[in-house]
């Protein structure tokens, strides 16, 4: 197996430093409020980090393309799972008025304060 690609140590060190830097970025940008985009921004940075791990630490950059195809296929199926499920949850109330109110939950939480949060009365 002498034809195997041995990656220079420098590449791995740079990868680690990039990932640590991106972790600081993750924490810093969480302090800003992007409104509805908060999750999207956090996921975007996480995606970059994940790509760096997959390309360099997992060696996909130097690997046979087929392994990357498997990973990308997995990600595509995950996206389908997300899009259809969340699409359903977000639009269900528009077509089914009864379904829209069925999120009442038997709660073990001891409520403190005046509770301007999602209350059971709103959902029933």
């Amino acid at each position: 197996m002498s034809e195997h690609h041995v990656v220079p140590i420098k590449t791995y060190v740079k990868t680690l430093l990039t990932l640590i830097f991106l972790t600081f970025v993750t924490v810093k940008i969480a302090e800003f409020d992007f409104g509805d985009l908060n999750v999207a921004v956090a996921l975007f940075v996480a995606m970059i980090k994940a790509s760096v791990v997959a390309l360099f630490f997992m060696g996909l950059k130097w690997d046979k393309g087929f392994n990357a195809v498997i990973l990308i296929t997995s990600v595509i199926f995950m996206s389908i799972f997300f899009l259809f499920t969340l699409g359903d949850i977000e639009t269900r109330a528009q077509t089914d008025k009864v379904e829209a109110m069925r999120f009442g939950i038997n709660s073990p939480v001891k409520i403190i304060g005046d509770g301007h949060s999602e209350s059971r009365s709103k959902n029933h």
Binding site: P108, V109, I111, D114, S119
Partner: peptide, 15 residues
């Protein structure tokens, strides 16, 4: 879930 015995302002905190 039902093992939750903490306090909070949201009724669905255990989720």
């Amino acid at each position: 879930a039902r093992w939750f015995f903490g306090e909070g302002t949201s009724e669905v905190l255990h989720i």
